[in-house]
Design a protein around this nucleic acid. Sequence first.
RNA 1: GCGCCUGUAGCUCAGUUGGAUAGAGCAACGGCCUUCUAAGCCGUAGGUCAGAGGUUCGAACCCUCUCAGGCGUACCA
Length: 553
Amino acid sequence: MKEQLRACILKGIEGCFADGTLASGTVPAIGVEKPAHPEHGDFSTNVAMQMAKAERKAPRAVAEIIVNKLAGSSDLIGSLEIAGPGFINFFIKDDAWRKTLAAIDQAGDAWGKSSIGAGKKVQVEFVSANPTGPLHIGHGRGAATGDAVASLLFAAGFDVQREYYINDAGNQMNTLGLSGLLRYRQLLGEQIEFPENCYQGDYMKDIARDAVTKYGDRFMKVPQEEGVAFFAKMGGDLILRGIDEDLQDFGVRFDNWFSEQSLFDDGKVKSAIEEMQGKGLIYEQEGALWFRTTDYGDDKDRVVVRSNGVTTYFASDIAYHRDKFARGFDWVIDVWGADHHGYVPRLKGIVQGLGHDADDLGIILVQLVSLLRDGVPVAMSTRSGEFVTLKEVVDEVGRDAARFFFLMRRSDSQLDFDLELAKRQSNDNPVYYVQYAHARIRSIFDTARERGVVPCFDDVRLELLQSADDMSLIKKLSVYPEILEGAAVNFEPHRITYYLQELAGEFHSFYNKSRVITEEPALTQARLFLLHCVAVTLKNALTVLGISAPERM
RNA sequence: GCGCCUGUAGCUCAGUUGGAUAGAGCAACGGCCUUCUAAGCCGUAGGUCAGAGGUUCGAACCCUCUCAGGCGUACCA
């Protein structure tokens, strides 16, 4: 609707140039927006104010010329007025609004989708937790965010792949192996003090127990190195499988699991370093190899290969991101915990060093989650291993509530997650508020059928929808595509959760004031059609967030 | 020290990329079920947008400084 109006205004201004009522000949970017107050119309534009200087006229005078040209020029515009310092306010004809409903019905599941992505290949990499322990609640927020952003981009017409990067190289795997081996030896009766820097969680004991069942005391007799290697492999595999299961229970599936170790096995780390050396971006100093990240705005250069010959994690990152682009992605998006924000400049450096634009790498920082129970913080400590896992949260509050809560806030602001609130089946729980709206609509359809009203949308008389409540609901529906698009390109799923709450609110309000099943068959059909469109929109928006739209509650 | 993020109603947060009189939910208070799901609705109250300057027709939003909180500043991953 906004776009149609924008085109309309542009045409009008060009008309003014053509007949000489306006002289400058240049059209600024036309800002069209929805005024905060309904008295100011459905939309307003500030072009007159922007053009005032070039036209050497007062803003309101320019507005008047444009208004004269626009009046009656389109079946979109019902009336228009000049207001304030030179705004032009537009009141859209109800008929034009009502056409949205037909569009929604026709598009169905595709309602809201756009093609701005133009099939561009984009990869979203997220979670990517080390396979050294189960996912905790912070990973949950990253998972919900990454998954939703991927879905949003898909809805915006991008060709999206979801990827999980497995950090299965590096010395945390040794620590994992050692942790497993020591728990194993403890289990078989040996008195060992478990080191502080080993993984403390009980899941290590489970892994050890598993090994005892399957292999008996076999690893008591082998050299420690062999035992560590075994437990690193076994533990890593087991933990990774557990992570995958937890994610699937959470409704997240990856298209690809990418192993860091494979970068070494395939010689990609080596070749990446060589390429960068060839470009003069990697140099040697004090026996180590350094990447010139300062060329790209980093505080200092970063070590790629240590003086002892061992590569750093950063080396893997160079190879990994090089590989992503080599796989044909035009746009690469990383989702990180916000505590890694210091790594942004050096990763942007890699990408530019590879010859891409800095913006070809998008980075989403997800802030930490504070877990509460009825407003009281739940104690969490990674060191003692007593953190709350994603699985525990999902088991307790359910997948839908968990996802909704994770997505309720902008990802770069900290999030309070109240377990009791998420479970509560009342109006202060936004998840149920939204889902209830969907279930309620389904219920109205059930009731209609019970009363012998068969919904038939072949020839709906939309013009019967003329109450204020009908119209505000229709207007709310019509902005969904813009909301979806904005949420996608800005990586901001929370815009959808807000929109859902607003739409559900409009519906509930409508429901309390307006009868759907009435004595007039034509009006009943029209209202059923309207609610059908609300249900489609609610469901599409929930689906893009990975949340179900229940038929009944 | 330097860098990044945050600061908006009692609480938790939005704020359409610079627009008109700053919004929502919760909490508080007062109403609404013999009619399609009360997991709902309607109303009242609540503000120095951390502070001070600046940019312009116009600033919660952009620039500078100050204050407060968080995070980061490895030849760790």
